[in-house]
C-alpha cells in the first residue's frame, strides 16, 4: 500500500508538469508525454509491484486533462503496461536499453491509438503529417525526458524499497 500512496504524488507532479509545462514545449507539433515516461520507468523497475495501478491512475488523470475521446489514455497506458510486462518476462534484463526501446514503442502506441480513436470520431489527419510533425518530434522529446526520469524514479523506487546498493 505504501507504493500506491507514493505513486499518487509522482503522478500528480508529472501530470501537472505535463499539462502546464511540457504540453507547451513543442517541437513542430509534437509534445512529450511525461506520464508515459514515468509509467515506463516505474514498470521497468524490478522492485515495483503496483505498476498496473499506476497505469490506471495515469489513464484516469489524463482522462480529466485531455479531450481524447473514448478514454483513449487508458488504452494507451494499459497497452504500454502490457507490452512492458511481456518484455520483462521474456526478454533480457538491460533496463536502460529496454527503456529506450519501450519509449519508442510507447510513442508509437500513443500515436496510433490517438490517430485511430480520432479517425473513428470522424476527425482525420494526414498520415504523413502525423508521422513527420507529431510522432517523430514527440518521440525525440520523450527520449530526451526518459533518461532524467529514469535516474530520478529509479532512485526514488530504490529508496522506497530500501534497496542496498552494496549488494
Amino acid at each position: 500500500m505504501g507504493e500506491i500512496a507514493s505513486i499518487v504524488p509522482i503522478l500528480f507532479i508529472a501530470g501537472t508538469l505535463e499539462v502546464a509545462v511540457f504540453s507547451r514545449l513543442q517541437i513542430l507539433y509534437g509534445t512529450a508525454d511525461l506520464l508515459m515516461i514515468v509509467l515506463i520507468v516505474w514498470s521497468l523497475n524490478v522492485n515495483t509491484k503496483y505498476s498496473l495501478v499506476m497505469a490506471l491512475l495515469a489513464g484516469f488523470m489524463m482522462s480529466f486533462y485531455s479531450a481524447l475521446p473514448m478514454y483513449g489514455y487508458f488504452l494507451i497506458y494499459l497497452s504500454i503496461w502490457v507490452f512492458i510486462q511481456i518484455l520483462k518476462n521474456r526478454i533480457w534484463q538491460m533496463p536502460l536499453i529496454l527503456m529506450v526501446f519501450t519509449t519508442i514503442v510507447g510513442t508509437i502506441f500513443s500515436t496510433v491509438i490517438s490517430y485511430g480513436i480520432l479517425f473513428l470520431q470522424d476527425v482525420s489527419y494526414d498520415l504523413s503529417f502525423v508521422v513527420s510533425q507529431i510522432f517523430v518530434p514527440s518521440m525525440a522529446l520523450n527520449l530526451i525526458l526518459a533518461y532524467p526520469a529514469y535516474s530520478f524514479l529509479n532512485d526514488y523506487a530504490d529508496w522506497l524499497y530500501r534497496v542496498d546498493s552494496t549488494k
Binding site: V19, S23, R24, T31, L35, S66, A67, L68, S114, Y125
Partner: peptide
C-alpha cells in the same frame, strides 16, 4: 488559462 491538452492531436486549453 492554466494548461493545454497534453495530446498533440488536440487543441484544447484548461
Amino acid at each position: 488559462v492554466i494548461g493545454k491538452d497534453p495530446s498533440p492531436f488536440l487543441q484544447y486549453v484548461l
